Amino acid sequence: MTSKKTWLITGVSSGFGYELTKQLLKKGDIVVGTVRKLDGVKDFTDQYPDTFFSKILDVTDTPSIHKVVNEVFTKFKIDVLVNNAGYGLFGAAEELSDEQVDRILNTDLVGSIQMIRSSLPHFREQKHGRIIQISSYGGQVAYPGNSMYHAAKFGIEGFVESVAQEVASFNIGVTIVEPGGARTEFRYGSAQVADELPAYDGNPAHDFKKMLDPANGLAPGDPARMAARIIESADKNPAPLRMVLGSEALKNTINTLEKRINDYKSQTDLAASTDFPTGE
């Protein structure tokens, strides 16, 4: 039987954050959840007054991240940090505004980086901890019309993979979760779309509109099952570095990586041509 844990989860008012919190509280764990507005977690507060604790936090505000994380670790011995806060932004790169670019990077990339950086000194002092970074298979596979989302997810995966190697000796495990399409608010509620330019009518950059329309079929991923697998991963030792959720996501990821590897292998002579000759 697994031991009870205390979790710090960002963005618990919707999506995976909400589902994770619901399942964890039901099984008796403690959750400290961050939200931008308290009304989104009133049901948790009312039903679990002794095991659910909310914190107001906008992850684009770095000073507030440091303040909240320090307060939480002072009051609780956090076992698991889940970086979940984030959203999708769709549209051709040219269609995006400067404000949209800055906001998604500050939310999906910089916010997660700063949450991890703020938590590491506390995990080291505790001599244990687990970091679960919610990414996407879009951290490995890129599609048109998703450029800034991919920029954030490719970026956070590189950061987290490096940090995982830095902190392994401190008994801090790190897992990158790469979900495929799921039936959450991410796709059917919170997704943001750029103002369209006529030049991109019929362009692959606008294919996302079919995906966002439920009339074209719902996403295959079950948020409840995905959340259960994420929770189970916290008890695995060593921590799995990556975990893909969804058969379609895994298939597309493997196909993309195989093509990438074959492309690299075809460049063997090209790469060697830029080395100094042996002995020089």
Results as ranks from 00 to 15, higher is better:
253 T>I: 03
29 D>S: 06
275 D>Y: 02
197 L>K: 12
158 G>A: 01
136 S>Y: 08
14 S>D: 07
33 G>M: 04
143 Y>D: 14
147 S>N: 13
203 N>W: 12
258 E>T: 07
225 R>K: 15
35 V>H: 05
241 L>S: 03
124 R>H: 13
217 G>A: 14
219 A>D: 12
54 S>N: 10
30 I>T: 15
140 Q>D: 14
31 V>G: 08
88 G>L: 03
263 D>V: 06
153 K>L: 05
170 F>Y: 15
276 F>K: 15
69 V>M: 05
213 D>W: 03
240 P>G: 05
63 P>F: 07
37 K>V: 05
139 G>H: 04
170 F>P: 03
129 G>C: 10
220 P>I: 14
186 F>R: 09
149 Y>V: 00
230 I>H: 01
58 D>P: 02
159 F>A: 01
126 Q>R: 12
136 S>A: 13
216 N>D: 11
96 L>W: 08
265 K>T: 10
127 K>W: 01
70 N>F: 11
8 L>P: 01
216 N>Y: 12
194 A>H: 02
115 M>V: 05
202 G>F: 13
82 V>D: 05
156 I>G: 01
174 V>D: 06
123 F>A: 10
153 K>W: 00
205 A>Q: 04
211 M>I: 08
248 E>V: 12
92 A>K: 02
278 T>G: 09
87 Y>D: 14
245 L>N: 06
4 K>I: 08
115 M>G: 11
149 Y>Q: 04
49 P>M: 09
30 I>S: 09
64 S>V: 02
93 A>Q: 03
174 V>Q: 06
151 A>Y: 04
223 P>W: 13
106 N>M: 07
280 E>S: 15
201 D>V: 04
241 L>P: 00
235 D>F: 12
178 E>K: 09
129 G>R: 09
106 N>E: 11
66 H>G: 03
104 I>T: 01
278 T>A: 15
9 I>D: 01
20 L>P: 00
127 K>F: 06
130 R>V: 14
258 E>Y: 04
187 R>L: 15
164 A>M: 00
65 I>H: 02
164 A>K: 08
261 I>G: 07
56 I>F: 08
108 D>N: 15
118 S>E: 07
196 E>N: 14
217 G>L: 09
114 Q>A: 09
235 D>Y: 06
93 A>Y: 07
170 F>N: 09
203 N>S: 15
114 Q>D: 10
188 Y>H: 10
145 G>M: 00
249 A>P: 01
257 L>V: 11
6 T>P: 08
179 P>L: 04
193 V>A: 06
116 I>A: 10
158 G>W: 03
41 V>S: 07
98 D>K: 08
131 I>Y: 05
39 D>N: 13
25 L>S: 09
91 G>S: 04
200 Y>I: 02
161 E>I: 02
81 L>E: 03
119 S>V: 12
67 K>N: 12
93 A>T: 14
190 S>W: 04
11 G>P: 04
137 Y>D: 09
48 Y>T: 11
95 E>P: 00
145 G>W: 00
32 V>W: 03
196 E>L: 14
172 I>K: 07
9 I>A: 01
15 G>M: 03
34 T>M: 03
244 V>F: 02
201 D>L: 06
159 F>D: 01
246 G>C: 07
